[in-house]
C-alpha cells in the first residue's frame, strides 16, 4: 500500500499556541516549546516528528486561527 507523507507549514506570527492541533493530531507530529515564542509572545507550534505526518489535515481543520497549511503526497 502506498504510504501517505504529509507536511505542515505554520504561519508562526498568527499562531497563538492554544495547543488544540497538538492534542488532535493522531500521529503526535506537532509540538510547541514554551521558550520559542513569536513576536506576540505566544509559543508557536512546529513539526516535532515530520516523518510521521500523513497529511490528514485534522490539525488545520481544528485550528481556530487558520495557521496551518497542509501538503500531502503519495510515496
Amino acid at each position: 500500500m502506498a504510504k501517505m507523507r504529509g507536511a505542515v507549514v505554520v504561519d508562526v506570527e498568527r499562531c497563538k499556541g492554544c495547543e488544540l492541533c497538538i492534542v488532535n493530531c493522531p500521529q503526535n507530529v506537532l509540538a510547541n516549546i514554551a521558550a520559542q515564542v513569536n513576536s506576540k509572545g505566544y509559543p508557536y507550534v512546529y513539526m516535532k516528528n515530520p516523518g510521521d505526518c500523513t497529511g490528514c489535515t485534522n490539525c488545520a481543520v481544528v485550528c481556530p486561527d487558520g495557521v496551518l497549511t497542509v501538503y500531502r503526497v503519495k510515496e
Binding site: R5, G6, A7, V9, D11, E13, R14, K16, G17, C18, E19, L20, Y42, G55, T57, A60, V61, P64, D65, G66, V67, L68, T69, V70, Y71, R72, V73
Partner: peptide, 27 residues
C-alpha cells in the same frame, strides 16, 4: 519535496481577510 503547490490539500480560505483574529487562543 512535499511542500509544493501541487501537493496542497488544505489552506486558509481566501474569503477571510489577512487580519489576525482578535479572539483568545483556542476560541
Amino acid at each position: 519535496d512535499i511542500i509544493k503547490p501541487e501537493n496542497l490539500v488544505y489552506k486558509r480560505t481566501e474569503c477571510l481577510t489577512d487580519k489576525v483574529l482578535s479572539y483568545c487562543p483556542g476560541c
